[in-house]
Design a protein around this nucleic acid. Structure first.
Length: 479
RNA sequence: GAGCCAUUAGCUCAGCAGGCAGAGCACCUGACUUUUAAUCAGGGUGUCCGGCGUUCGAAUCGCCGAUGGCUCACCA
């Protein structure tokens, strides 16, 4: 580092700014390497970061990297002159340079640019990791993502793909008449999902505020307002554990459509996912964690059917909780720490323990127990709601329902949630009086869906950890 | 929140029957006019994660702590 600072000063003493200015590039690396026939013999201006240097006395080779790829530069004393050639010794791996020269092929056949003029655009004062092994230390990769991005081109590809996925979602929704909106991140009540919120404080108003845990209740207020087809792609925050699939802040897409229902949401989800997959991968299949996932078809099952299929327990065969529990125990199924106080909770527990992991190909599980669905519309059997979740690779990818639009029923559901809260359930939904007021003005029959964007990106980029699809994952502060 | 594992040079790692801190790449000096993990000759640049302890002596053993990874719990 001391040596690099010295070189920086030497550039200055030569009248060259080691932290230069605008550079007008005429070609990217891949424009040259992939279209050599048209480019051969042409003069180009290229720029990039020096990734390797191979000096040979009176000639020198360097590899530079730009957003699209890498390119070899060829420096020759005959072309540059003795003085100028000597100055390339001031360049280090990591420096950003701009060069002008002619496209040609070396004796070994490598497509290169014969440098006629070069300039330092930014001197790198810190050495990059070793070229062969690169950077593998996960802690540095996540904390100093910029170094990770410089050294590992496949990491860059993941984030380029993430951008394309989100862009494809927007394109699909915009072209289908959905309107993108922005709702508050700071909430006075953290509702719309079951999770513990981050708490903050507004000084001037002198009140507690919460970072949102869902987008749901504000978006549904907009449906009341007549916006009819809205969506938001936004960051939500849940004060929960961090692991391979969870980060405290993550990106959620929620969409609401008046006069639709959960059937409409299933159709939308299938079509959206198929289109996004096609747009970013060119096919409807994707290989993730060794499994080939086909987004062209979604299996459909009710939760009761799925539980019967995988656990052998038929929800309808038992009249009481006790009978059902007895049957579960006889099968030797361990429900772990799940709530088992009602048949609905038992069904959900069975689903978690016995079904979820089997849902590898895209599967829609329909008709959830009312106990775990406080914002979804009741079915004819009042123990169930018009709700579905989409599963892929044994993980939940989306959650949707026919929205509960009866304000009287909603108030009762909120009150039940408040009871749970009093019993110590920190994740129960709080009663949102303003949301009830909105509903009392009339919420059209509505279908709504939420899709976990990070999980979708994980699937489409074959990433094992959510941290691999977040540019800057949440990390503990050092020291 | 619990368990297991890891932390040594800029990077990737070795060294751990307790005995002078090591290799490759990077870097520095020199040679080399077509290399591509260039090559050749020479040079080690360090808070061995931190603290305490055991010991004549600790990178190595013990305890406490920090950070990270994985697994489990909560959750999407």
């Amino acid at each position: 580092m001391i040596v690099r600072r010295g070189k920086m000063e030497e550039f200055r003493s030569l009248g060259l700014d080691p932290f230069g200015h605008r550079f007008q590039r005429t070609a990217y690396s891949t424009d040259i390497t992939e279209h050599f026939e048209e480019m051969e013999g042409k003069s180009v201006a290229v720029t990039g970061r020096i990734m390797s240097v191979r000096g040979h006395g009176k000639v020198s080779f360097m590899e530079i990297s730009d957003i699209k790829g890498t390119l070899q530069l060829f420096f020759k004393i005959d072309v540059l002159g003795e003085e100028n050639f000597k100055q390339i010794k001031l360049l280090d791996i990591g420096d950003i340079i701009g060069v002008n020269g002619e496209v040609f092929r070396t004796q070994r056949g490598q497509i290169s640019v014969r440098v006629e003029r070069w300039e330092i655009l930014s001197k790198s004062l810190r050495p990059l990791p070793e070229k062969f092994h690169g950077l593998t230390d996960t802690e540095i990769r996540y904390r100093q993502r910029y170094v990770d991005l410089i050294m590992n081109p496949e990491v860059k590809d993941v984030f380029i793909k993430r951008s394309k996925i989100i862009s494809a979602i927007r394109h699909y929704l915009d072209s289908h008449g959905y309107m993108e909106v922005e709702t508050p991140v700071l909430h006075t009540l953290a509702g719309g999902a079951a999770a513990r919120p981050f708490i903050t404080h507004h000084n001037t108003l002198d009140m507690e505020m919460y970072l949102r845990i869902a987008l749901e209740l504000h978006l549904k207020r907009l449906i009341v307002g007549g916006l009819e087809k809205v969506y938001e792609i936004g960051r939500v925050f849940r004060n929960e554990g961090i692991d391979i699939r969870h980060n405290p802040e993550f990106t959620l897409m929620e969409l609401y459509e008046a006069f639709s229902d959960y059937e409409g949401m299933i159709e939308l989800t299938e079509d959206l996912l198929k289109n996004v997959c096609l747009a970013v991968n060119g096919t409807t299949t994707v290989v993730c964690q060794g499994e080939t996932i086909d987004f062209s078809h979604f299996e459909r099952m009710t939760m009761v059917e799925a539980v019967k299929k995988y656990s052998g327990i038929d929800y309808y065969a038992y009249d009481t909780v006790a009978e059902m529990k007895k049957a579960i125990a006889e099968k030797g199924i361990d429900l772990e720490d799940n709530d088992t106080s009602t048949k609905g909770y038992l069904l959900n527990a069975l689903f978690d323990v016995t079904v979820e992991k089997h849902l590898i190909q895209p599967t829609v599980i329909m008709d959830y127990p009312i106990e775990i669905s406080p914002l979804a519309k009741k079915m004819d059997d009042p123990n169930f709601t018009y709700r579905f979740e989409g599963f892929v690779l044994g993980r939940e990818l989306c959650n949707a329902f026919s929205e509960l639009n009866d304000p009287i029923d909603q108030r009762e559901r909120f009150e039940r949630q408040m009871d749970l809260r009093k019993e110590g359930d920190e994740e129960a939904n709080p009663l949102d009086e303003d949301y009830l007021t909105a509903m009392e003005y009339g919420l059209a029959p509505t279908g709504g869906i939420g899709i976990g964007i990070d999980r979708l990106v994980m699937l489409l980029t074959d990433s094992a950890s959510i941290r691999d699809v977040l540019l800057f994952p949440t990390m503990k502060q050092r020291e």
